[in-house]
Design a protein around this nucleic acid. Sequence first.
DNA 1: AATTAAGGCAACCGCCGAAGA
DNA 2: CTCTTCGGCGGTTGCCTTAAT
Length: 260
Amino acid sequence: MGRSPCCEKAHTNKGAWTKEEDERLIAYIKANGEGCWRSLPKAASLLRCGKSCRLRWINYLRPDLKRGNFTEEEDELIIKLHSLLGNKWSLIAARLPGRTDNEIKNYWNTHIKRKLVSMGIDPATHRPLHEAQQNNSISFFKAGNNKVVEFAKREEGRNKSSSSSSSSSSNSSEKMLMWRRSEEEKTKWRCPDLNLELSISPPYEKKEDIFDYEVLNREPLIGLCFSCKLGVKNSSECKCGGVFLGFSRGVLDYRSLETN
DNA sequence: AATTAAGGCAACCGCCGAAGA
DNA sequence: CTCTTCGGCGGTTGCCTTAAT
């Protein structure tokens, strides 16, 4: 049952690639193109497993790779993307032409982590170190998210008990904004974590009725309504359609992250 | 000059979802 | 429907180089 194995593991080389192996792999891919890693080693007369060939090609031999040091701009972009995407190195690499996920991962672990720590920023949470220690891994976002849920429940209860008052429902987003502002006063705005759970979402539709322009325009996640900023999925309070950097209603929409 | 520690990076490992048999 | 492999990913390892003592 099942497919036949791609290679005999007992007869494959391991460790560093030789120049000759590299040349064979390059020549084969130039002639036949990428893909079908399973059959490649045999066809290219390489004593390597397909997985190893793929890794060598993608991380080292590809002609479009940008070798050399990372620029300041790339540093900043990596940090920004990491704050949004976490350790999704392949997604981060997709936004940096000529860089591989492995390269970025290594660079993050050896350079950027240290750089952020020296700046007093926790590389895991992207928040000030003292704050991360105080919170002990409980993020502001989680607490904030719970508060939103509690708030919504309270509002729902009030709406039910005073259903005659038609204005209470329409006021809830305003109340939420007021609560939000009071929270801001306390926290001085910290970048929320984002919900990275993937889901299929409808195509992006531009909504004119953006929630509170004034707040959006002075906060980092410009274009997202309050509930989306807090990562609340499918919130009835959502006024923006929830699309920012590929996040649809607080959920990552891969289609909008595709590069040209 | 010899030894040790730290840094950097290529490659491997193990897991997961998709898909073939 | 089940079993197995493939392709892809993130985490980790281990070797090589450089810096410090």
